[in-house]
Amino acid sequence: MSVDKDTVRRIAHLARIAIKEEELEPMTGELNTILAWVEQLDEVDTDGVPPMTSVVEATLRQRADEVTDGGYADRVTKNASNRNDGFFAVPKVME
């Protein structure tokens, strides 16, 4: 499978990355090189092989459903470029 410029434009939008028109052509070429290379995986017979979900053989731990941390919105929002009274602030999303 290979991608064209329109597909790259669409993927970039899905990934929320602004791409300049002149970047599309080289990016398309690079992605196609990588995609063509990973296609060698098709040579591997994986019928009936389960996909790996965890590299260590462990079941996820359970913990008591209780609050153990928090209560410091000021610290949580400290690195935001725009914050307001313990909230993250973003451009208006509704009229």
Partner: peptide, 22 residues
């Protein structure tokens, strides 16, 4: 979002995020 990520990520990171998204 798009402008932030477009100017904040370098070429290799963009390449991998796009491959991953695809």
């Amino acid at each position: 979002y798009e402008n932030t990520r477009g100017s904040g990520f370098g070429a290799e990171v963009k390449r991998r995020v796009l491959i991953g998204t695809y």
